[in-house]
Amino acid sequence: MAHELFIKLLRKIYATGESELDCERVRASLPAYVEFELAGNDPAVRFPQVKAHLAQCPDCAEEHEGLRAVASLEAKGALPEAEESLKRFEAEPVQESADIGAVPAP
């Protein structure tokens, strides 16, 4: 575990670019990035700087995952009605594996 932390930090250091996009610009690009990704494309081709930022910034990465899950469901015509989602909060024990709409990483 200790070395994993060191290796992760080291990879982030070496992946550092001379200039990187800030969080605000990345957030603005996320909708187009996610649709490009969901169409089966490699986002590194069209959005290399956004992809690089997502590897460094945990908060933007979390929001990217969330947007991708929602956009993926909508693209499949499977975005649940509000009532359907709310039912999952009715006295249901929290299960890590019981997720909906999770999209595997490309």
Binding site: A69, E81, S85, F89, V94, I100
Partner: peptide, 25 residues
Amino acid sequence: FLLRAVLVYLTLHRSDLAGWGRQAV
């Protein structure tokens, strides 16, 4: 649409909302 989207997001992160009932969510 926003309501449906955010409820999907909150459902995916239910572990952060332990103890939250339906009405609070």
